[in-house]
Design a protein around this nucleic acid. Structure first.
Length: 574
RNA sequence: GGACCUAUAGCCUAGUUUGGAUAAGGCGUCAGCCUUCUAAGCUGAAGAUCCAGGGUUCAAAUCCCUGUGGGUCCGCCA
């Protein structure tokens, strides 16, 4: 708690501490707990009197009433009122507003950032699409969650390493190489690489249903690949480079980049030594001809290091990756942004690492739910998936249509449509707790009203438009009279603004970006309420105009900073 | 058979980790608001046995137990 305060309490006046000190002295207690009232009109802090009633042998209502009479005003507090069993504190809005707003005017696009992370390294593994398969809507989740977590950690002063752990190895490539040799040719491959390979993959699975011995052929092909068969390796690397250049299109669209693209194949040369280290450090055994780490004591199935035929599994490659990353980057935290269906896999992996005395706490499986069709599961193998590019394109097109309808004279329509269309898709994913499954619905994902990115982007454009029309230059050296901030709507905004940093810190702890998405929605809602109730541009009262404009400026700045941390762009107009 | 996740208005969700003041928001429905800073907006109304049943507590959507529904996973796929 203390450590937390050190980083986030840039505000000089520590209202909370002042109130606690006075209460502690008055009640002769070592510790008191304050709450934030549910309604802003009930005050800024509240002290519940329930627990006291036991040894004071009075009702909480009575205690609260007596305290109201006896207690002296803490510094920064202007009013104390007993409301039922609570003692409610109202702080000096002028001081509070001044400290919050001056802070943001000073820090601008850095507002909310800090040195909380102390430059410690955080490795984020995310996106990780599979070569030779289309970039489906399912891969959106890891991509945008990982990107957002990476950005937020950087913003909080961590040294972030972004790794794209491409699925480019394993029996699936045995299947593909086998299929290509049997049914494929290079001329058709060049025309439309991913679709062509994808169709081969689907064909393989169709054939597999008729003849389940085919899987053995696939395993043999993968074994040959692992052993460095020249012809297959050449083919594999052709598939790989064709796929990567297609993926790059999606990353460009989403404006996402990586520090390392190290697919599973990257660890191939490190597998033997990895197995050696594991064998030396912890007990392993041969079971049904395969090399395993037995995890029965941990109530888990074994970790499979080497298959009966001698080739490796993704367990082995993930172990190699973990050891390599610990050794090379010495990270404080490692985040694996991978779907929740792999939970057991990561629990096994982390358990083995912990058996090897490699600190378990560093490793985090940032898991998330599936994207399903309302009628059931999407399946790459069966070929019923939705392409991410298709979703993005549709969304951008719809945004363009909407602009033409609502604001036909707007300049740079295409650029803005792209920001809105893509932002909308990203936000739809990030705005709910990642653990929940998502039921894919075209109508829902192509909706720009209500709790969506366009709603927030629109709020931003509104705010910027006011500032532009007011012709006021908001500078940190401006003399702003904060005592003119008197309305409920204004103060509500100041309160919202003040907790931005706390929201980011929470995300660094529980790794859930939806807190930020929900925060930006509430901030935008509060702003729109304010917007409709109070006029900012008022040429008769320049002082009030300046005070209100400083709030408008601050809200816009936070929306910009916040959306950016989710990987979403804003536009000055829309 | 076992393990993990999940359940909040017609629908989608926040709140659950850290128990407190009338359970919050969006979609949809109904009634209003554009000659005044962008209506992708705002105001109001209707709409909730917080899955069920027990327990702990002054106080439970939140903690504990037992069920039920849904999802995911359970060595040679990743």
């Amino acid at each position: 708690m203390e450590g937390k305060n050190r980083y986030i309490k840039k505000i000089k006046m520590n209202f909370e501490k002042n109130i606690k000190d006075v209460l502690k002295k008055q009640l002769n207690l070592k510790e008191v707990v304050l709450e934030i009232p549910s309604n802003i009109e009930l005050g800024d802090y509240a002290f519940p009197c329930f627990t006291l009633s036991k040894f004071l042998k009075k009702s909480p209502v009575q205690i609260s009433k007596e305290l109201e009479q006896k207690i002296k005003l803490p510094k920064g507090v202007i009013k104390i009122i007993s409301i039922g069993p609570y003692l409610n504190f109202f702080i000096d809005k002028t001081i509070f507003s001044k400290e919050v707003i001056t802070n943001i005017l000073r820090k601008k696009e850095k507002y909310g950032s800090s040195c909380f992370g102390k430059k410690e390294k955080v490795l984020v593994e995310f996106s990780s699409p599979n070569i030779a398969k289309p970039f489906g809507i399912g891969h959106l989740r890891s991509t945008v969650i990982g990107n957002s977590l990476a950005k937020i950690h950087s913003f909080l002063g961590y040294n972030v390493i972004k790794v794209n752990h491409i699925g480019d190895w394993g029996t699936q490539f045995g299947k593909l190489l086998y299929s290509f040799e049997k049914w494929g040719n290079k001329r058709d491959l060049r025309k439309d690489p991913i679709n062509y390979l994808f169709n081969l993959y689907v064909k393989f699975h169709n054939e597999l249903e008729k003849d389940n011995l085919l899987i053995e052929d696939a395993r043999i092909y993968f074994k040959k690949l692992e052993e460095g068969n020249v012809k297959l390796t050449k083919l594999w690397s052709l598939f790989s480079s064709l796929s990567l250049s297609e993926f790059q299109r999606v990353y460009n669209l989403l404006n996402i980049d990586f520090d390392y693209i190290q697919g599973e194949s990257f660890y191939q040369s490190k597998l033997d030594s990895t197995i050696d280290i594991i064998k030396k450090t912890i007990p392993t055994e041969i079971s049904e001809g395969a090399l395993i780490v037995n995890l029965k004591k941990k109530n888990m199935p074994p970790l499979l290091l080497r298959k009966t035929n001698g080739s490796t599994t993704y367990h082995t490659r993930d172990m190699a990756a973990a050891l390599y990353r610990l050794n090379k980057f010495k990270p404080k935290k490692l985040l694996y942004v991978v779907g929740s269906e792999q939970r057991l896999h990561f629990n096994q992996l982390f358990e083995v690492l912990s058996m090897m005395n490699l600190s378990r706490e560093k490793f985090n499986h940032v898991d998330f739910g599936l994207i399903n069709f309302p009628e059931g599961k999407m399946s790459t193998r069966k070929g019923n998936i939705i392409l991410l590019e298709e979703v993005l394109d549709k969304s951008i097109n719809l945004a363009l249509t909407t602009i033409n309808k609502k604001n036909p004279s707007l300049k740079n329509k295409e650029i803005i449509a792209k920001k809105v269309g893509i932002g909308s898709i990203i936000f739809a994913d990030l705005s709910n707790d990642r653990i929940r499954n998502i039921s894919f619905d075209w109508d829902k994902i192509l909706d720009f009203e209500g709790e969506t990115a366009p709603y927030i982007q629109y709020t931003y454009a509104r705010a910027r438009s006011i500032l532009k029309k007011s012709k006021i230059k908001i500078l940190s050296k401006n003399k702003i009279d904060f005592s003119l901030i008197t309305t409920k709507e204004e103060y509500n905004l100041i309160k919202q603004i003040s907790i931005f940093e706390e929201v980011l810190m929470k995300i660094a702890t529980d790794l859930k970006p939806h807190h930020l998405a929900k925060y930006l929605l509430v901030l935008s809602q509060s702003f729109n309420e304010f917007y409709h109730k109070h006029k900012v541009i008022d040429l008769d009262n320049k002082e009030i105009m300046l005070a209100r404009a400083s709030i408008v400026y601050s809200v816009a700045q936070i929306i910009k900073n916040g959306l950016n941390l989710l990987g979403i762009d804003v536009s000055e107009e829309m």
